[in-house]
Design a protein around this nucleic acid. Structure first.
Lengths: 137, 137
DNA sequence: TTAATAGTCTATAAAATCTATAGAGTATAA
DNA sequence: TTATACTCTATAGATTTTATAGACTATTAA
């Protein structure tokens, strides 16, 4: 399961993308309309800024805005930034790989191989879908 | 990510399935060969027994054994029992559904619809793959 | 220059979940 | 009746999640 942080972050990004570049969007505005706890949202947006997804402006007329085209921001990237690994097991993660301590040989592990397949399958979907896709409609 | 409990549980089940009905398998044997903390494993196997996946026998010649044919036990079932929801969001879970508190209407939510698609995709794989498949080789 | 606005930074913390371990108890077989 | 092996209850440290509080800084407009 994705954390609430991740769900909130994705909803906020979709909200900003829907604004379609009409200037920065206020944290308080996102917080109210998407019903996300404001202080929590502040931390999440700051995180997204650190990873180069969002930019921000202080003072009147300020807020958060996208730094990239919505069609260039995939769900795979966003989930990795907000939630971490996409794979079901660390020994099968592409970006957060960790050796399996209890496995003598991962290449022979049936679980490892199956979970790699699940990962590839999910990744195909997450890479295809972009903020642009989710902000339309 | 799946919890260690889930990974341990799956490995134990594959181990038992590989034994192929040649009598019950000892907890201590699984613990040693799969390098799973024994006390932790005890709790996990007990859980699997409660859910009707495993049976057990006490005393000499005892141990754990499968109650069903390996080909009738899917990864979907096992992950649900051991880990919980397969879906990425509660509002999209088939077996652990929870209403999205911050969503006025889930049917209109872009995230909801996409995550339902991801769920279906993953579920197809998890339902196809059985203990039999993973215990071969 | 100063007042209002709006994001930033640091600290804190309750709650939940995860990952176990200890030890006494019970059923079974030889 | 003894050794074996699963069972049950309790406990507990570590980590992660989900926030909240409050002071600080940058920006804009009057």
């Amino acid at each position: 399961m994705l954390s609430k942080k991740t769900k909130y972050g994705l909803k906020a990004l979709i909200h900003i993308a829907k604004n379609g570049g009409k200037g920065p969007v206020l944290i308080s505005s996102i917080s109210e309309k998407e019903r996300i706890p404001k202080k929590f949202l502040e931390a999440i947006l700051l995180d997204l800024k650190k990873f180069g997804i969002l930019g921000s402006k202080k003072g009147k007329g300020g807020g958060y805005y996208l730094l990239k085209e919505p069609k260039d921001v995939s769900m795979a990237t966003l989930i990795r930034v907000l939630d971490g690994p996409i794979a079901m097991l660390p020994c099968v993660s592409l970006n957060f790989y960790e050796r399996c301590e209890d496995c003598p040989d991962e290449q022979i592990c049936e679980l490892n191989r199956f979970m790699a397949q699940v990962r590839d399958n999910t990744l195909t979907l997450l890479r295809q879908k972009t903020l642009h896709d989710l902000a339309m409609l």
